[in-house]
Structures are given as structure tokens and as C-alpha cells.
Nucleic acid binder design. Structure first.
Lengths: 103, 103
DNA sequence: ACCATAGTTCGATAATAGTTGAACCGTCTG
DNA sequence: CAGACGGTTCAACTATTATCGAACTATGGT
């Protein structure tokens, strides 16, 4: 398995509410999503997960959000660019992000 | 510890978002909360948790929702009456329930 | 071409959560 | 007042999730 391959993301229709809620039920992941509100961010610049956190742990947290369909993780240069899937989540569960993320 | 004692419920201000999201991130618990949308229900009448589920398991599921502040569980005769804390959740996280429960 | 960077994956371990039977407790009904 | 009923709690077990080091891999810069 090559790190380069584009990682699997669920299609919009495959996003499950319980998976989204679970992904957001963790302080660190919620903080990351909140940070992504302002726009896409390279993983390395995401301070939300904490500076002291090993990269394998960070990778895991991002994976949970990605597999739940909350974020997109694309290869961008030698970084991963993380993007909140706002339109998809809004389409599937209108009002959810608005209620969970601060204004 | 007596079963009769009123069980601990967090005050409105102590309800934490991550705990609520976690409580709702389980299909059975989510189904129960959806059932409670229509109004309070005695625990014994809650079909959402499934009919084959042992009572200790049901008690545990209800506990998670109660401790998260999602529902109130009051002694009502020899039953437990479950009530969705709609006002409290709405006050703390406006729009959340509306987005998570079907219209 | 080399090396540093950013990140994934794997494997092990720790921590948390779920499931269930058994024992128990109040309340209601007869 | 003796059941039956509806639940809670406990303890043991299982299952899922989190954490993190180590090995590995593209990529970009020099």
C-alpha cells in the first residue's frame, strides 16, 4: 500500500450520521473541524490536534474524520490538504455543522 | 445504592457537546431519542432499543443518554419515564436536535 | 542524486465502551 | 403482605478505540 494513493472517502450518499457524530464526539477532532471552518489547511499546519502529538496519532484522528466523510484529505505537494466537506454534510444533515461549530 | 434514588442528571450548563454527540453516535440510542421526540415514554414502552435486549443492556444505554444530559429518567410508579431534554439541548446547542432527528 | 519533510501503515499495548447474567430494590397489584 | 414487575448495579468478559514507536514512501528542495 502506497502512501501516495488517494485515500478512500465515502461518497456523499454514503455518509452516515452516527459515524459523523462519533467522529465529532472527540475534543481534538472537533477542534480540528472547527479550525477547518475557516478554510482548507495543510495537515502540518493544523494546531488543533496539539503540537506534542505524534504523527501516527494525528494520522489516525484525521483518518476517523475522513472515513466518516467529514473531511477530504488530498495530496498537496508533500503535504496533506484537509478540507471540511461542508456542502456534503449540509446536504445530508442540514444544520448539523452550524449547530456544532461556533458561529 | 438504592434504585429508588433519583439518578444523577447534569445541570443544563454542565451538558457537554462531545458527550451529547457521543451519546447520539449509536444507532440504538439515536433511535430511542427519535422515539422520545413525540413525547415522554416509559422505558418499558421504548421499542427503539429492541425487544430482545436484556434489561441490563437497556439500562446501560439509557444511562449513557442520561449522563450526557440528553434525557431525563424519572421514577414514575414502578417504571422509569424518559423525557427528551429538548429545551436544555436547544438552549445549549441550538439546531442540533433539529438536524439530528427527522422532522 | 541525496536528504529532509510530511504522512501512512503496522503492530503492540493501553484505555474505554458494550453486553450480559445474577443479585438486588421499590412499587404496584392482588 | 406476598408476588410480579421494572429497573439498577455489579462483576466479568468481549470488543472497539486510542496511543505511539518503528519502518516505509512520495515529494520537494538543494
Amino acid at each position: 500500500m502506497v502512501a501516495n494513493e488517494s485515500l478512500p472517502h465515502p461518497g456523499r450518499e454514503d455518509i452516515e450520521l452516527t459515524a459523523v457524530l462519533f467522529a465529532l464526539s472527540d475534543e481534538a477532532r472537533l477542534a480540528l473541524v472547527r479550525q477547518l471552518q475557516a478554510g482548507p489547511l495543510d495537515m502540518v499546519d493544523c494546531s488543533a490536534l496539539g503540537p506534542e502529538v505524534p504523527k501516527s496519532t494525528r494520522s489516525h484522528q484525521v483518518k476517523v474524520l475522513r472515513e466518516a466523510g467529514v473531511i477530504v484529505s488530498e495530496l498537496h505537494g508533500r503535504n496533506r490538504r484537509l478540507t471540511l466537506r461542508r456542502e456534503d454534510i449540509d446536504a445530508r444533515f442540514p444544520g448539523l455543522l452550524e449547530s456544532v461549530l461556533p458561529e
